[in-house]
């Protein structure tokens, strides 16, 4: 469609406004981590630093122990993502493509579970983990994360699996392949973009999750990045430079994922949301 001059002007103003409002606050926060200490706590604040300083970055890595929070986050988010996708694919296949009894009930049940507020399961989950001796362990956080991420993952995967044509699947079955082989050799390769999308969303969710991480990981050694950054140690004044530097480093992987896989993320978030 061709646009009138007024429409073009409106669009340009809108695009600029959306970009500035989305990015400017975070860019400003990133800049705090590279300012000399005196300028971070200058009154009135200074918008642009006069000099670049790496003191805060150095402090965040060596004094705050950023790397061990990153290690914990990588382990928890990584394992959650892998297990979630495997269990999710296994479950989505019969829900999307097989004739099984109570299919609709299970789908509705999964949708209902996705709505559960974390607080409504937090107390009992904590008691179960304590009984198993799993508080402050990786599996103690990974398994509740699976319960939180699986419903939407299965929903997204079932949606992608459901859109595949059935010819190849039927051919494989005629050739004598079992259902597990059909899933791993036919369905998953065909739906690879969908599987990747589900993995991306699960990873981002478990990298960012805070509530359960706060409850379950009470020992500093096991805490993930969000917990470390929320409970940033500060005696009398907050170490804003270090908080900003640590936040910037913790956000880099997410920014890269968004830049490279923007299309896949959008497809995943809207999968199944707007139909009919």
């Amino acid at each position: 469609m061709t646009r009138s001059f007024r429409e073009s002007l409106l669009l340009i103003v809108g695009v600029i406004a959306a970009m500035v409002l989305s990015l400017a606050p975070f860019l400003w926060f990133v800049s705090i981590g590279f300012k000399p200490q005196v300028e971070i706590t200058a009154i009135p604040p200074r918008l642009f630093p006069s000099d670049v300083s790496f003191t805060a970055v150095h402090e965040a890595i060596f004094t705050f122990g950023l790397m061990h929070f990153i290690k914990n986050s990588v382990i928890v988010a990584g394992c959650t993502t892998i297990v979630c996708v495997v269990v999710g694919c296994l479950a989505a296949y019969p829900l999307a493509r097989l004739r099984i009894p109570y299919r609709r009930v299970i789908l509705l049940g999964i949708l209902a579970v996705a709505m559960f507020p974390q607080i409504s399961i937090a107390g009992p989950v904590w008691r179960i983990l304590r009984a198993l001796g799993w508080l402050n362990t990786y599996q103690g956080l990974i398994i509740p994360y699976l319960a939180l991420t699986l419903p939407l993952t299965v929903w997204i995967l079932a949606n992608f699996f459901g859109q595949l044509p059935s010819e190849l699947e039927e051919a494989a079955l005629v050739d004598g392949a079992g259902l597990f082989q059909v899933l791993t050799r036919v369905i998953m390769p065909l739906a690879a973009p969908g599987v990747f999308t589900a993995a991306l969303l699960t990873f981002i969710y478990s990298w960012n999750e805070f509530f359960f991480a706060l409850l379950i990981m009470t020992e500093r050694d096991r805490q993930t990045l969000p917990v470390g950054i929320a409970l940033f140690p500060g005696e009398y004044t907050m170490p804003w430079g270090e908080i900003s530097a640590a936040s910037t480093i913790a956000t880099i992987p997410l920014i890269l994922l968004v830049l490279f896989f923007q299309k896949r993320i959008i497809a995943g978030l809207t999968a199944g949301a707007v139909k009919g």
Partner: peptide
């Protein structure tokens, strides 16, 4: 532009909270 708009969504909420708290 679409990627830029996704940035706030991708930032961990805890980090966005610290950011606004300092702002």
């Amino acid at each position: 532009v679409r990627a830029a708009i996704l940035v706030p969504w991708a930032i961990p909420t805890v980090i966005a909270s610290q950011m606004w708290r300092f702002a």
